[in-house]
Design a binder for these strands. Structure first.
Lengths: 139, 139
DNA sequence: GTAGATGCAAATTTTTTGCATTTAG
DNA sequence: CTAAATGCAAAAAATTTGCATCTAC
């Protein structure tokens, strides 16, 4: 079980294994695109659990600090969160409705090159394409 | 003069040519990496001009809606703005201090491919690498 | 003269924090 | 039992908005 694994990673890092954290991780596991803190909160409440929005934020912050979750800021001013899985993901984002579609990453090679030129230690990258999705096109 | 051109584009779209807008455009012209609304505001004030922060936001919103400015959200929760120039720019961003270094774009070809697969109308993309800059490495 | 732009203050929205209380290990 | 986690309410920070006033055209 993947969520079990995540919880164990937390335990291994001196973090307690609570129902709230399990609930947040479950939502992240079930989501196939990045979700906002509010969305996570609502999905947990809808599943019959009780949780506070600040617990959601604190859990996400913890998971990000442990490298288990990636945070991205969107143009609408809200952050989105996604589990860091084996291979990372990039997204095609509809500028009409913010819907996200996963796409493959084409730019592993570039990192080494840029790192050499700029003397940065490259730790990651983000690639996003923007466009109008078929549904928004019809409107 | 480039800023003159921008102002004229505004005029051509039924927008008035004011000192505030000129000041915002001047700051954007002078910046070689994306800047926050607050930074724009401060630079205008420091240059001896008087302007209100909401005028800065309104001007940026206007410029973005006319396609003259690109807005990007950063992980620190603040948006950054940059003039849309002939060729677009991508950035290498230090996760320590948020410093940005321009890099070339390697992914024009990808857009067509993704567009065909997803039936989105691709309107643009964003590529960012993250890392630790030489200065932050020393600390 | 008039539509559009600005300043100001207040409202919104998202995220963070302090502190008293609860709970996992 | 104790450090860590949570809930709640309040604070912060970025951005937006309503409205009276001002200004470019």
């Amino acid at each position: 079980m993947d969520d079990k694994r995540k919880v164990n990673i937390l335990a291994g890092k001196g973090c307690k294994n609570t129902k709230s954290r399990e609930a947040v991780i479950n939502v992240l596991e079930a989501a196939d695109t990045p979700v906002s803190a509010e969305e996570i909160f609502v999905r947990i409440i809808e599943s019959g659990f009780s949780i506070n929005i600040s617990t959601v934020y604190r859990t996400l912050e913890l998971l990000e600090s442990k490298g288990l979750v990636a945070k991205t800021m969107m143009k609408d001013g809200r952050a989105r969160f996604e589990l860091v899985r084996g291979e990372h993901r990039h997204h095609l984002i509809c500028t009409g409705c913010m819907k996200m579609v996963p796409i493959d990453c084409p730019i592993e090679a570039l990192e080494r090159d840029v790192g050499r030129k700029t003397r940065f230690d490259i730790t990651g990258h983000k690639l996003e394409l923007y466009g109008i999705c078929p549904e928004c096109k019809e409107e």
